[in-house]
Simulated assay, not measured.
Amino acid sequence: MWSTDRNTMRAVFYDAWRHFKEQTPLTGVEALIVEALVAHPEYQPLFDDGRPSETIDPTAGSGTNPFLHLGLHIAIAEQIATDRPPGVASEWQRLQGLWQDAHRARHAMMECLEETLWEAQSRGIAPDDSAYIERLRALGTGGRKK
């Protein structure tokens, strides 16, 4: 999955969905992709034809890039599994318990991650793990509205 070529990266999403539909074993990252796709049926038709297309505009109509959105789901799942940066897993537990909605909690975390990544990219620096964790801690406390 880790490539600099957009079509190669996108092919992993198509392969994961095809493997799921064919009920063949999934790799670790494929399982994460499928979990995110199952939670987002609005994206499934894009993957139903089974092959990536260079001509597809994934944001047409919705304004959301499903590859980016699904990739953020994967990033959050990996962060939770590894507790990287430290504290992210406990924030996940808190948010999931607070809202009783895992998908909502992931989406809120994804917004914090997007903000942290945007900030780093715009400044040309590495993402600030402390700022990210503080954004997560503010969720559900009145510091941020979700």
Score class of each variant (00 low, 15 high):
70 L>P: 05
51 R>H: 06
130 S>Q: 07
126 A>P: 07
21 K>H: 12
4 T>D: 12
142 G>R: 10
81 A>K: 15
23 Q>P: 01
20 F>H: 15
8 T>D: 13
126 A>I: 06
55 T>E: 14
116 T>H: 01
40 H>V: 01
113 L>V: 00
38 V>Y: 07
68 L>G: 07
97 G>D: 07
1 M>Q: 10
88 V>E: 03
133 I>V: 11
63 G>S: 10
146 K>Q: 00
117 L>Y: 02
82 T>K: 15
92 W>V: 05
59 T>I: 07
21 K>D: 00
100 Q>P: 01
130 S>L: 02
35 E>N: 13
1 M>H: 13
67 F>T: 04
28 G>K: 15
113 L>H: 03
41 P>G: 12
124 G>I: 12
50 G>I: 02
29 V>C: 03
51 R>M: 13
128 D>N: 15
100 Q>K: 09
123 R>L: 13
52 P>H: 04
126 A>K: 14
135 R>H: 05
126 A>Q: 13
8 T>I: 15
96 Q>G: 01
120 A>G: 08
72 L>T: 09
52 P>S: 11
33 I>C: 06
69 H>M: 08
74 I>K: 09
109 M>V: 07
48 D>L: 05
36 A>M: 00
143 G>M: 02
145 K>F: 08
126 A>V: 11
110 M>D: 01
107 H>E: 02
62 S>T: 15
93 Q>R: 11
62 S>C: 03
72 L>G: 03
114 E>L: 06
140 G>H: 11
105 A>M: 04
38 V>A: 10
121 Q>V: 08
108 A>V: 04
87 G>P: 11
131 A>H: 06
45 P>Y: 05
125 I>V: 15
61 G>R: 07
37 L>M: 14
87 G>T: 08
18 R>P: 00
103 H>Y: 00
46 L>G: 01
85 P>A: 05
54 E>A: 11
78 E>L: 13
5 D>I: 15
15 D>M: 09
35 E>P: 08
1 M>E: 12
94 R>G: 04
37 L>G: 09
24 T>L: 04
73 H>V: 05
24 T>R: 15
32 L>N: 10
81 A>L: 11
23 Q>K: 14
142 G>S: 06
131 A>C: 01
101 D>G: 04
133 I>A: 05
67 F>D: 07
5 D>K: 15
141 T>S: 11
100 Q>C: 02
39 A>N: 12
146 K>A: 10
124 G>S: 13
95 L>A: 02
78 E>H: 12
106 R>E: 00
74 I>W: 04
55 T>W: 11
20 F>L: 09
136 L>G: 03
108 A>I: 03
31 A>V: 00
104 R>H: 02
84 R>E: 00
49 D>G: 10
98 L>D: 03
16 A>W: 04
24 T>G: 01
11 A>H: 09
32 L>W: 10
83 D>W: 05
9 M>P: 01
25 P>I: 00
140 G>S: 12
68 L>F: 09
38 V>T: 15
127 P>G: 05
96 Q>I: 03
110 M>P: 03
71 G>P: 01
118 W>H: 11
47 F>Q: 05
55 T>K: 13
34 V>K: 07
17 W>F: 12
122 S>Y: 02
105 A>S: 14
95 L>T: 11
45 P>T: 11
77 A>N: 10
62 S>Q: 09
77 A>P: 05
82 T>R: 14
58 P>C: 06
97 G>H: 07
82 T>Y: 07
136 L>A: 01
77 A>C: 04
112 C>L: 01
34 V>N: 06
145 K>Y: 05
